[in-house]
Amino acid sequence: MWSKNRETREGMRHGVRVDLGLRPVGAPSVDDADLSRRNILLSLGIAGVAAAGGAMGLVAYNDEASAAPTTDATSGRAHQWCRVIDLRACKGERKCISSCQKRHGLPPEQTWMRVLSWKDDGKEYFMPVPCQMCENPPCVNVCPVSATFQTAQGVVLVDQDTCIGSRACMAACPYEARYFNWRRPVDTHRMPSPSPSTPEFPANQIGTVGKCVLCADLIPYANELPACVPACPNGVHYIGDFVTDVAVNGRATVKLSTFLRENNAVRFKEELGTNPRTYYILGNGQPLGGPPGGAK
């Protein structure tokens, strides 16, 4: 499966700013369509290179108008990924973190997701905080070289080969979801390996910023789930798609809009206007972010 997708990945690399949502929902499964898809992606990659070349001198102003993902919502040709985190089920086992670190070959001190925990009235609470995949990402606005960008499917990624390491995005992120390679990374064992470094499946480099990529190399193509989702023994993590209105946690499938509405899902730091695409389902009485004194 992996080697087959390598061309796909190369095509994505060039066409990434053009469109990611290539695969129609009703299209035949991966194996049948592989050949034609490869051609489409190849030509799309070429088109992407041409478009990038033509747009070189144009304004790369990352305001909301251009950052807003364009989608033909009614035809369902694009996906708009999101997360739902069901805090009722979280027991703080941190399996999501370890599976993520294993898949991306991260050093122990670098976690692309944090699990906050605190005790209140004798009860222990947990809250996983990955990149919230903001629809209006402050990190994208402040990057001086446009190394961090938002894909057409709403995933915020970092191009490791462009990042100059200014760390402006780390300053701008209200969710502390960005991490820097402060030291020369040890030989990484990304899974599966070997594979080329793309923004969707980046290899660590010294002096650049890394973050949760929502396993963007997996979800649109192979219909696989991000590493953290099936890793959770309690089904806390859901990956969802606004357009097709579906979310799964590896065992259950739900209708996303109904699920969010019926469970009074909320978003973290709503007041900052970042429009995060990560929803939290409360329900055991905890506030988002921890108790007023600050979580430990």
């Binding site: 446009s146 390679n181 650049t208």
Partner: peptide, 21 residues
């Protein structure tokens, strides 16, 4: 200050005009 000063020219070749930096 930069993590990758070797890519400093990116400020000229692919600038983001929305960035204060």
């Amino acid at each position: 200050h930069l993590g990758r000063p070797d890519r400093f020219l990116g400020m000229v070749t692919q600038p983001n005009f929305a960035s204060p930096i």
